Computed example of a mutant assay.
Amino acid sequence: MTTTVLRYGYPLFMLVGVNGAAIALAATGAPHWQLLLPVLAAVGASFLVERLIPYQRDWNQSHNDSVRDAVHVFVNESLIIISVAAIPALAALRGGHSWWPEQLPFVIQVLLAIVVADAGITLVHMASHRYGWLWRLHAVHHSVTRCYGLNGLMKHPLHQMLEMAGGVAPLIVVGMPVPVAEALAVCVAVQLLMQHSNADYRVGPLRGVLALNSGHRFHHLKQAGAGDVNFGLFTLVWDHLAGTYVYDADRRFSSDDLGMAAKPDYPAGYAEQIVVPFTEAGACGTMRPLPRRTWRQRLSLDDHGTRHPS
């Protein structure tokens, strides 16, 4: 009974409770530092539930990556905070006119920001698997050998900035207010925790709509081209449209399935990961997403999702 409550209650707590608290704080003009409280609550809940209902117990143990990942999180979360703080200055460059629908309820404004950011970040993500110069930066994220909450911000800071620019730049152009940006930043942090979580939580049929951990594990498969699926940050809508969505309920993952088969000795230290994209060791050929049918065949599924022997 407890396991069932955790499996279905945890995503509600994170996606509705934590995000809802952040939206309420931002809507009422709470001090900026108070927006950190929902993030800290989300991180704490993530680590707790990963230990109560783990997907893989060994993913809760450090693979000599805990300190490195903590540094990645600190640097990249700091960049997000700085980006939010810079919005007024960027708005001044845009000029005084705003096309933002401030007459809408605040929660609707945040949902609108999420939809736009999801599209922009997903498109940059897709491009990062298609063009070698972007892949050099994005490969840092794909070097992971376990999936757990902090993986979400385990990224090269330049790639983090490019993804955020793809999602947030259109919103700044149309005049997104700072409180909406603050709520959006918390929602992004929560989503990254959920997407890479080692918690064996469930969302029922929404797993085909929301970009959560059960689908995102396919994105971290180590074979070349195998992870060119399920790119979405918040939703899988763009993957359905692009033919890059895939899911197999019977597939189980272990550390042997993750990482990069072509680069098994990819640097594991933080400093090395910051430098390697600009070295010969970080070189990588252009990658192109596989068509859906190829993926269906690789997963031994027919067009209706029925399993067949390989």
Rank of each mutant, 00 (worst) to 15 (best):
248 D>K: 13
206 L>G: 07
217 R>E: 05
231 F>H: 10
281 A>F: 01
164 M>H: 13
303 D>K: 14
142 H>P: 08
49 V>L: 12
38 P>M: 08
260 M>L: 15
22 A>N: 06
163 E>Q: 14
118 D>A: 04
163 E>D: 03
291 P>H: 09
120 G>N: 12
197 S>F: 02
215 G>P: 01
12 L>Y: 13
108 I>C: 06
96 G>I: 05
291 P>D: 10
142 H>E: 10
53 I>L: 10
155 K>E: 05
206 L>N: 07
14 M>S: 08
280 E>T: 14
174 V>D: 12
113 A>E: 03
214 S>E: 13
5 V>H: 08
58 D>N: 13
184 L>G: 02
184 L>E: 03
32 H>A: 15
11 P>E: 08
310 S>D: 11
150 L>E: 01
122 T>R: 10
206 L>A: 15
97 H>G: 06
14 M>I: 14
267 P>M: 10
113 A>P: 07
6 L>P: 02
264 P>Y: 04
238 W>C: 00
114 I>K: 00
248 D>Q: 09
56 Q>H: 11
234 F>W: 08
162 L>I: 12
53 I>W: 12
180 V>M: 06
263 K>W: 05
13 F>R: 04
89 A>Y: 13
16 V>A: 15
42 A>E: 09
61 Q>H: 12
142 H>C: 11
202 R>E: 11
93 L>D: 08
80 I>G: 01
70 A>L: 15
7 R>H: 08
250 D>G: 12
232 G>S: 03
256 D>R: 13
71 V>Q: 08
148 Y>M: 03
303 D>G: 11
64 N>W: 12
230 N>P: 02
267 P>H: 06
286 T>P: 14
277 P>W: 03
277 P>N: 10
281 A>G: 11
105 P>R: 02
302 D>R: 03
1 M>Q: 14
56 Q>F: 04
272 E>H: 11
26 A>W: 08
216 H>I: 11
220 H>R: 03
48 L>A: 15
54 P>L: 07
61 Q>M: 05
18 V>H: 02
269 G>R: 15
51 R>A: 02
186 V>A: 05
263 K>H: 15
1 M>K: 13
196 H>M: 04
129 H>C: 05
164 M>A: 10
185 A>I: 09
4 T>V: 13
58 D>Q: 14
310 S>E: 09
88 P>H: 01
228 D>W: 08
99 W>Y: 12
143 S>Q: 15
257 D>H: 14
260 M>A: 01
226 A>T: 00
251 R>Y: 01
298 R>C: 01
286 T>I: 06
24 A>C: 06
53 I>C: 11
201 Y>P: 00
128 S>Y: 09
180 V>D: 00
